[in-house]
């Protein structure tokens, strides 16, 4: 998918280093998400990690996460999203932040 400034989202994310941990630092309870009417995480996450599924749940991945925390700040369903830091030394590594 190409963004309208000509950079595809994949190319954008390719510029960022991720030292992916084995343990997922984000856990989503899709059962809770099914009752969510806003699904604000889907567009608000700058890394585009959350995708709505056909049955009304949320599919997510944690590997390419900026660790900004926007998702849990906008999540309006208690218990839907559990967020911890990735294990020490893992996760995003910014060089030009």
């Amino acid at each position: 998918m190409t963004g309208y400034d000509g950079i595809s989202f994949d190319d954008r994310m390719e510029t960022v280093e991720f030292r992916v941990a084995e343990r997922a630092h984000i856990v989503v309870d899709s059962d809770v998400c099914r009752s969510c009417t806003t699904k604000a995480c889907v567009t608000a996450c700058p890394a585009n990690l959350f995708a709505p599924t056909s049955d009304g749940g949320i599919l997510f991945n944690y590997e390419q996460c900026f660790e900004c925390g926007t998702c849990y700040q906008v999540c309006n369903a208690e218990g839907a999203l559990t967020w911890t830091y990735p294990d020490g030394g893992h996760g995003v590594v910014f060089r030009h932040g």
């Binding site: 400034d5 994310m13 890394a47 700040q73 060089r95 932040g97």
Partner: peptide, 27 residues
């Protein structure tokens, strides 16, 4: 929104031909 900004006629000449080196996000 960043794409909008880069496309604005006041900003576009600054960024023309530049390659994306890194994308970052933070609260």
């Amino acid at each position: 929104l960043v794409a909008d900004l880069k496309a604005h006629p006041a900003v576009a000449p600054w960024v023309e031909g530049a390659d994306l080196k890194e994308y970052t996000a933070h609260l």
